[in-house]
Amino acid sequence: MSFEPKILGILCNWCSYTGADLAGTARLKYPANLMSVRVMCSGRVDPGFIFDAFKAGADGVLICGCHPGDCHYVEGNYKCLRRIPMTKTLLQGFGIDPNRLRLEWVSASEGLRFQQVVTEFTEQIRSLGPLQLKEWGYTPHQSEAGHPEPQPALNQ
């Protein structure tokens, strides 16, 4: 049986999620490896989501937002654009190939493009092989006791 990667898609509500919807209504087929989570804007994507996804067993993470200049929230996608290279550097530090993370612009009318992006990214992750965090001695989370609550700040 060939390797079927698990890919997390984080899609912005206004462009990419609608674009993915359009791909669906247009009966375009894309690999079922992608499982998507909706956020209001690609600017909402906390790098923590990406690390959490890899920790939870994802082999790749695809983030889609509106095209530059087209953001529903004026400039959230630019904020995302700035955070991704930083996250990639951090991923490298953890020994995770930064090519497992990708940022793409998909507009609400680009169902076809969404299909192409997902298909291509899935193939790329497939060729990269499974993310072997387990082999390095890490057990996917279950035992973890949720996420740390924010600590009261020092100025309080």
Binding site: V39, M40, C41, G43, R44, V45, D46, P47, H72, Y73, G76, K79, R83
Partner: peptide, 9 residues
């Protein structure tokens, strides 16, 4: 407008 950019930042 609930874009959440500040939340992530």
């Amino acid at each position: 407008k609930a874009c959440g950019t500040c939340v992530a930042g």
